[in-house]
């Protein structure tokens, strides 16, 4: 009885994970600039892969009776590092001068950078 329920849960988790990965790929394909593409890639793909790994873990736990701690470790690792990688590459894109979409209306970081850049340059010139 409980095994049937877990099998259905595994199937649902696999479907959800594959769907989220497809959604993130379509977002990377169709969105207009780097920052929106990164928004699609780093969030939807992370949830999709965690869902698929959870399905794999449940499958091994129920079908084989094998508690695989490496899958839990991989889930935690991906959940921590994938948004960090997205943040780093987004920051590198902004600092290397990639333009925003020309229809975007607000750039708060530009004001901050202009305010902070003057004292930094004076400190560097000393």
């Amino acid at each position: 009885m409980i095994e049937e329920i877990v099998r259905v849960v595994v199937v649902i988790l696999i479907i959800v994970g594959a769907f989220l990965n497809l959604v993130s790929a379509v977002g990377v394909l169709r969105l207009p600039d780097v920052y929106t593409r990164n928004h699609a890639a780093s969030k939807a793909a992370t949830l999709g892969i965690v869902s698929i790994l959870l399905a794999t873990f449940l499958y091994y736990y129920v079908e084989v009776g094998h508690f695989n701690a490496r899958l839990i470790l991989a889930m935690v690792f991906l959940f921590i590092t994938s948004p960090v990688a997205g943040h780093l590459i987004n920051r590198a894109a902004y600092n290397s001068g990639v333009k925003l979409w020309d229809k975007s209306v607000q750039d708060d970081l530009k004001k901050e950078m202009q305010q902070n850049s003057k004292p930094k340059r004076m400190k560097l010139s000393k």
């Binding site: 994970g17 780097v34 991906l78 290397s96």
Partner: peptide, 22 residues
């Protein structure tokens, strides 16, 4: 741009993890 390619390669790595699990 170059960050586009890096983002897409990172997502390819994540999808590769999914393929290995399946």
């Amino acid at each position: 741009t170059m960050p586009d390619r890096v983002i897409a390669l990172d997502a390819i790595g994540i999808n590769l993890v999914a393929i290995i699990a399946l």
